[in-house]
Each structure stands twice: as C-alpha cells, then as structure tokens.
Design a binder for these strands. Structure first.
Ligand SMILES: [Mn+2]
Ligand SMILES: [Mn+2]
Length: 432
DNA sequence: ATCATAGGCCAC
DNA sequence: AAACGTGGCCTATGAT
C-alpha cells in the first residue's frame, strides 16, 4: 500500500502498527515528532527525519520566497504586527521573516543587500538575562555583567564549584575546553529554563543528567542568586494581587488566570441533587443556579489537596459528579499563568528595549544622512542596510543607539554588529 | 473553495 | 507524575 510520508497519522500506523515498534514516549503513544523519531532505532525513522528536514526548508523558504518577491524590485515585503505577541513583541507574517533559518548556509544566501549597499545586523548579547539581572536587583548577577563577565560562565563556576576559567569554552591561550563548554551550556540551560518555568525533570532530560543532579544544580543556582528567586516570587505575587505584570518600561500583560480559584463548583442542572422546589422556601432559584455552599466546597478541596496524582483527582471528581456537583479544576491554567508571569516580564522588557531602540534609530538624523534604513526586527536584533561606503560610521551609530535605548539600568547593554553582503553571511572587513 | 484543528518545526 | 515562554507556516484531515 502507498503511504503519505507527510502524514503523521500514517507514519504512526507504519511505525507502531505495521512495524510494531514500541513508542519511546509513553505520554505520546502515537507521536512522530523529532525527539521521538531520534529514539527509534530503525532506518525508517532516519529516513522520515531526513525527509522532514528537507521538505520543511524547501516548502517554507526555498519555494515560497520567489513567489512573493516584488517582480520589479525583487524585494520581499513582510508585515510586522505591533501587537502580535501578548508580551509586547512584534510578530511577523506573510511571510514570517522572524523565523528564517539562521544556521543554514543555503537559505541565508537568499537575502542580500541592494546594489552598492551592505546589510547591518546588530544583536543584543544576552538581552534577556541582563534585563533579568536588572529587574531582580540580584547583586551577584549585576556585578557579573558590570565586570564584563559571561553570566553563564559565572553560574557554571558556582554550580560546579570550579574556577571561572574552568567553565569557559576557550582557555586563556585560545585553545578549546570541551568540559568548560559543557558546563557553561548546562548553566545556560538552567538559567533559561528557570526563567521560562521549566521543571527540574525536563532540565535533567535536556542535560542528559540524573534528576537528582539537575535538582542539585537548580538549588545551587537559586541559593547563589537569591535575588532571582525573589524576583520570580514577586512577579507571581504581583499578578495574583493585580491581575497583571509589568515590564521595566511599564508595559502590562494581563494574566487574569492568576486570580482563578483552584477549583470551581457548580450543581449539575443548577440545583442540588436533593433539591425539592415544593419544600424550598427560599426564592434563590429565580435568580439563577444555586451556589454550592462553602462547607461542601471546603470538604472537596480538602480531599483534593491531599493528593497529587491526576488519576486520584479524576476519581474524586467522578464521585462529586455522582453527587450532582461538577468540579472544574483550574490547576493547569494557573500553572500556565504562573510560568507566564516571570517570562512576560523578561520577554516584554526585552521587547520594550528593542522597540525603543527602533524609535531612536528611526528618528536619528545622522543615520538618515548616511543613507541607513531599517529593514527587519527579530526580537533582540535589528537589521538594516546602508551604502557600502558609510558602513563603518553607520555600524558604530547603530550599535550605540541600541545600547542607548536602556541607559539608566543597573546593568550595561551590549550589541554585536555584523556587516555583510548576505544575511548571516561572512562578515565584511571595515576599512577607512 | 474556505475554515478550523492537529501535529510538526522554524526562529528568538 | 510533572508541559519551558513568545510567535507563524507547512501538510493532513474533516467540516462547512
Ligand atoms: Mn542575542
Ligand atoms: Mn538574536
């Protein structure tokens, strides 16, 4: 029988039914995602992965772009959606120019500066961690950035109890240190994971270390940077109290789910199971459904809070249903909102900074005189073009204004500028 | 044809 | 036993 290799459903039939392979991830018994296929030791899994990789690039980028270029200018015109993301970030669509593969030599060559011009791309270095350091006020984090240190290296050295230099990718003499790189990567994964609300088990999985080891590192990071832990708790409390969180520059993100009750109770049918209108002397029924009384709610809440297993919770809910009471569990929504609290403040502050930089750059007379024009924003990065001869002057001004966008913070900002012919291409030398 | 959803995957 | 945040676009699939 022919099968469609582009159909996840048909691939699942092939792998799990026809070939009888055991699903590596029990929570996704029919999954065919990249991580799952990598764990399957069968030539078919490898072939599917290869096919996916190629067709993704082919359909989304290589075949798509030529069909939407302006026939006269050969330019592509994207839409930047000012309110595209709830955090304050732009989104980009039709086409999305914020997810062009950056590690693929073939695709990046597609985008070039116009004749006689160069592309300038300036990327904030560690934008989000720096803003996290600022917002948290954590002395050690701030000190690390003030001293021009690499925070991830700093954290690795604390977590592993090793000198700073043992946690760097490169040694003083310029030779590589694979152990150092691994330590730094682990620290980076943990800091980012913490900021995004990742749990310890998932961090362990990422790092390929036992859960216990991941927990150790996690705890050490939290103890070493008390301001960070406080910042996370403050962010959650802000959202619980006010229903929103704010960024460094005052942008709000509403998170109403933080104010949900963990459980909501309603009578199925609007009245208790034993409700008898003939013997009910209160007229509450006319005003809508009856509310479950506090004592009953509390009884269920006490039982529910005694267990952490989803299965047992389901049993309790089923029992309640049998007694005519519907229990809505908001735990999942609250957990999600709790992760969004911290992340939104960080991501939103970064978006603010980048947008402020865009305003400074768009209003700058000098850049205008030098023929510079902003083309794209990719969250922590701005891309523009200018005449080749002005490249050096523009590059300096460009980066300066991006740093200037956040000048009164407790940590410095830093930008890396690249001047290229093609997007992500080989850096050009800037003479004169 | 157009729309909605799911699974999957690209970016930061 | 535990979803890591923010997006958009691809194909498949089933409904209108
Ligand atoms: Mn960056
Ligand atoms: Mn970037």
């Amino acid at each position: 029988y022919p099968i469609n290799i582009s159909s996840p459903a048909q691939i699942a039939i092939l792998l799990y039914d026809v070939l009888g392979i055991e699903p590596p991830d029990k929570s996704k018994p029919r999954g065919t995602g990249e991580e799952i296929l990598q764990k399957i030791d069968h030539p078919m899994a490898e072939i599917i992965l290869e096919y996916r990789g190629i067709t993704k690039l082919l359909s989304t980028y290589i075949e798509k772009m030529p069909t939407i270029t302006n026939p006269k200018t050969y330019r592509i015109h994207t839409s930047f959606n000012q309110m595209g993301a709830d955090t304050g970030r732009f989104s980009s669509s039709d086409p999305n120019m914020q997810n062009i593969p950056s590690h693929n030599d073939e695709i990046r060559k597609m985008f070039r500066a116009s004749e006689g011009h160069v592309l300038l791309s300036s990327d904030y270095s560690a934008q989000e961690p720096r803003l996290t350091a600022h917002m948290s006020g954590d002395e050690k984090m701030i000190a690390a950035y003030k001293a021009g240190k690499d925070l991830y290296v700093e954290i690795a050295s604390i977590a592993y109890n090793l000198p700073y230099d043992e946690c760097k990718e490169f040694r003083e003499d310029g030779t590589r240190n694979p152990d150092g790189k691994e330590r730094r990567n682990a620290a980076k994964a943990i800091v980012l994971g913490v900021c995004y609300g990742k749990g310890v088990p998932a961090i362990a999985e990422d790092l390929g270390v036992p859960r216990k080891k991941a927990q150790e590192i996690y705890d050490k990071v939290m103890v070493s940077f008390p301001g960070l832990k406080q910042f996370m708790e403050d962010s959650e409390n802000m959202a619980r109290d006010y229903g929103f969180v704010t960024t460094v520059w005052g942008r709000k993100r509403r998170l109403p789910n933080m104010q949900l009750e963990p459980y909501e109770f309603t009578y199925i049918g609007g009245v208790p199971k034993d409700f008898d209108p003939l013997f009910d002397d209160e007229d509450e029924f006319d005003d809508g459904p009856l509310e479950v009384d506090e004592a009953t709610k509390q009884r269920y809440i006490n039982v529910l809070n005694r267990t952490y297993s989803r299965k047992e919770k389901e049993v309790i809910k089923a029992k309640a249903k049998n007694e005519g009471i519907l229990i809505k569990d908001n735990g999942g929504y609250i957990a999600e909102a709790t992760r969004q609290c911290v992340n939104s403040r960080i991501q939103g502050s970064a978006a603010d900074q980048t947008k402020l930089a865009m305003i400074l750059i768009g209003n700058d007379k000098k850049l205008k005189e030098l023929g510079f024009r902003l083309l794209l924003t990719v969250h922590d990065e701005l891309i523009g073009e200018c005449p080749k001869k002005n490249a050096k002057e523009v590059a300096e001004r460009f980066a300066h204004l991006m740093v200037e966008a956040a000048k009164d913070l407790s940590v410095p900002s830093k930008c890396d500028v690249e001047v290229t012919e093609c997007w992500y291409g080989e850096p050009l030398q800037l003479d004169e």
